Computed example of a mutant assay.
Amino acid sequence: MARYIGPKSKIARRFGAPIFGPDRVLSKKNYPPGQHGNNRRRKTSEYGLQLREKQKAKYTYGVLERQFRNLFFKAQRSKGVTGEVLLQLLEQRLDNVVYRLGIAPTRAAARQLVTHKHIVLDGRVMNVPSYQVKPGQIVGVRERSKNMEVVLDSLAGVNHSKYPWLEWDENSKSGKFLHIPERQDIPEDIREQLIVELYSK
């Protein structure tokens, strides 16, 4: 299954944001990687800014190019503002919902929990990270996986009321996907309009 497995701190430094989670390297070296990372003065072109924003979104949500492009065209065919719909589709991915619920500390860890069959959707095991969760569906931890150290550590001290489109049930270790999130509720610092402009060329 295709996924990005390269150096993460290097990517985070390129964008100047902890897109893979807290990063000690980024806090020490808050400038782009490479020999001239601290001394770059060249102005980025319009195309460069658009490409950078697309790459930032791809790395943030752990999606490769073909999947991302397919999601964009799906968003384009849907009603509503294309950029916002694209982010909503990314937020609906099962691995992202597992991450937002606090079951896993990062999206990469959430993806692994899903592929290793530790996650259930409406009571049935689901091992497809890209599955689009629909409003009303319940995402939870498989019964035999509820005492896993990684799950317990991740859930400890999590603020489950942080995202208004999700509802957490502590007893069953599961969360309900209430509705598709509004753009203002999605905390990711992504300028989706630049992505739309890039694909519209």
Rank of each mutant, 00 (worst) to 15 (best):
Q88D: 03
K28G: 08
R111F: 04
R3K: 11
P105G: 01
A17Q: 13
I119D: 03
R52K: 15
I119F: 02
H116F: 01
L87H: 03
E53D: 05
Q50K: 14
K74A: 15
Y59W: 09
Q67L: 09
F20Y: 15
I5C: 07
G80K: 06
V97N: 01
Y59R: 10
G62M: 06
Q35G: 06
K117N: 08
R107P: 07
K43Y: 04
Y59H: 15
L64F: 05
R13T: 07
A110Q: 06
Q112G: 02
R69F: 08
N127Y: 07
A12R: 00
T115W: 00
R41S: 14
D95V: 07
V63Q: 03
N38E: 09
K74Y: 02
Q35S: 14
K117R: 15
L89I: 10
L26N: 09
P18R: 08
E84A: 09
R93V: 03
N96V: 12
K74V: 07
K58L: 04
G16R: 11
V63N: 02
R14M: 09
R13L: 08
K10R: 12
Q92P: 05
R66Y: 11
R24T: 14
S78K: 14
Q55E: 14
D122S: 08
P105L: 00
P7E: 10
K29P: 03
K79H: 12
L49N: 12
R52T: 08
A2T: 10
R100F: 04
G6T: 06
L121K: 05
D122Y: 06
A104L: 02
L121M: 09
G123S: 08
T44L: 14
G37I: 11
K28Q: 15
P18E: 07
G37A: 12
R93W: 01
N96Y: 05
N70A: 13
A109F: 01
A109G: 10
V114S: 02
H36N: 14
Y4I: 06
Q92F: 02
L121R: 09
L86Q: 07
S9K: 01
R41T: 14
L87I: 08
P32S: 12
L89F: 12
A2S: 10
R124I: 08
Q67V: 11
Q50T: 01
I11V: 15
I119P: 00
Y31P: 12
L113H: 11
R52V: 04
D23E: 15
F73E: 13
G34T: 12
E46N: 10
R42I: 14
P7R: 13
R100D: 01
I103P: 00
L64M: 15
L101R: 02
G102P: 03
L26T: 11
P7D: 08
S27D: 15
R124Q: 13
A104M: 03
K29D: 09
